Amino acid sequence: MAGRMVVFACAGCGAELTAPVSRVALPDHAHQFYQWVLMPALLEPGTYAVDPEPQGPPWRMWDEVGAEEAAARGVYAPVISLSYGPAGRVAVAPGDVRWTAPILARCVGYCCGHHGGEGVNLACAGCGRAVATRVDDCSYWQVVWLEPGAVRRVVQEESAPVIAGWEDLPCEPAVDLAGRWNPIWEAAAGVALARVVVASGGGPVRVADGPAARFFQPWLDFLLPRKGVAKVLGVVGPGVGESRADIVLVPRHPQTGRAWRVRLGTAVPLAGGVWAGLAFGDGWPPVPASGRMPDGVLRDEPPPRPPWVRFEPDQDLFVHRLARSPQVREPWLRAIYDRVREGTRWRSVDG
């Protein structure tokens, strides 16, 4: 059943600061830093997502915080610094923001826009209350983060979109038509890889035959032992059926954030569009067909080019997720964490 759309209004004067929006799951790539390119919007128009983790300034260094206090905040391995900003910030597409004005002293960035490093940089145009942080510089997904204490939700009469069924998951291609790896895939794979490593218990993992082996096996071989009795990693979900695999990649619904339930194996959620690409699309973009075009086949000319570099899960997101897994305090997993975080880059993996 669909809920209601909401508008976020200034907690001070009540001015409406967004268009009507409906809630979706926070994407894995919400805090991805991706090369030196101008990125698109993080979210689709008309949607919002909530970040459960603290984000933004003030920051405190690890040596100042200490392991005990960090663990109380959900971080179980050393990081450079911890955010003491608010949890529960609300992400919206920049085009859905209304009635705000820039706080010029905090609008800092590099070559293309604002990176949000100085904190809240948008104020309510009605009363001047600091309400949000706009991020639109190169390498960052474009988004506006509404401060949870500065805005309030106003429920609208309009119904929110109906929750899509599992069979309607969109298929996110791993490669774009220019032959570049999709950063959404890299982010989702980095987060899922961390969870698979945790589920491995420190032993080898063999990926069952299929597209998932191409994207995960090299990195599992790099991170985990190759000898011994291996756990099997499979793909399970709507239209795929059950599996006897020990660890299973299951889709995470893009609207609700819920993971597909399984009866057997340890479930590792994977972004729904990426999971669908693995399960049904082989991860690749549409290719042209000759003769009469069958229903459902997309024409694409010229053919898409294959990537000229190998696929790499997002290493920073891998480290971020591992640091927030309580199991990282176990010696075998802490050793993996330290090895990856302290300078062993993915490029050292045998291709």
Rank of each mutant, 00 (worst) to 15 (best):
F8D: 05
A72F: 09
L104W: 15
W219H: 12
A30W: 09
R106E: 08
Q217W: 00
I103Y: 09
P225Q: 06
A71N: 04
F33E: 11
C10P: 00
T133V: 03
R345Y: 13
E147M: 02
D136R: 01
E167R: 14
L223H: 00
V205F: 06
G149M: 10
L220H: 02
T18A: 07
C111F: 14
G88R: 05
A259L: 01
V236H: 06
H31V: 15
E158V: 10
R73K: 08
M1K: 13
D300Y: 15
V90M: 11
C112D: 15
V6L: 08
P218N: 01
P204Y: 04
Q142M: 10
V229A: 15
G12D: 02
V143D: 00
Y337I: 01
L82R: 09
I163F: 13
L298Y: 12
A2N: 06
E157C: 06
Q255V: 12
Q255A: 11
M5H: 03
P251G: 02
G283V: 02
A87C: 07
T256C: 01
L223E: 01
G265M: 08
Q32K: 11
V250H: 00
I80C: 10
R244N: 13
V309A: 10
E158K: 11
P331R: 00
A25D: 00
T100W: 09
G12K: 08
A41R: 06
W346N: 05
G241H: 03
Y76F: 15
G66H: 11
W59Y: 15
N182K: 06
R339L: 05
L104R: 15
A178P: 03
P173Q: 11
R347H: 12
W284D: 10
A174M: 08
A91W: 11
G273Q: 05
P307Q: 05
E118P: 07
G85L: 03
R299G: 14
A71Y: 09
A213M: 08
G190E: 04
V162K: 14
L298K: 14
A192W: 07
Y84S: 13
V175D: 01
Q255P: 04
N121K: 05
F280L: 07
Y337N: 01
E312H: 11
E16H: 05
D314H: 04
Y140Q: 10
L264V: 15
M39L: 14
Y34H: 13
V131K: 00
A67I: 07
P161C: 04
L322D: 03
A87Y: 08
Y76V: 11
L333D: 04
F318V: 01
Q32M: 09
I103C: 05
D168N: 14
D176C: 03
V235F: 04
R226F: 03
I163M: 13
R195E: 10
G283M: 06
L17H: 03
E186Q: 13
F318A: 01
E330M: 12
A125P: 00
G351P: 14
R195S: 11
L177A: 12
W62L: 08
G272H: 02
D246W: 09
P307I: 09
G203Q: 00
D209T: 13
E172S: 11
G179H: 05
V232R: 08
R345K: 12
E53S: 13
T18S: 07
G179L: 12
D51P: 09
V92P: 07
L17D: 05
D96C: 12
C127W: 10
P218Y: 03
D316R: 14
P78A: 13
E312R: 15
N182S: 06
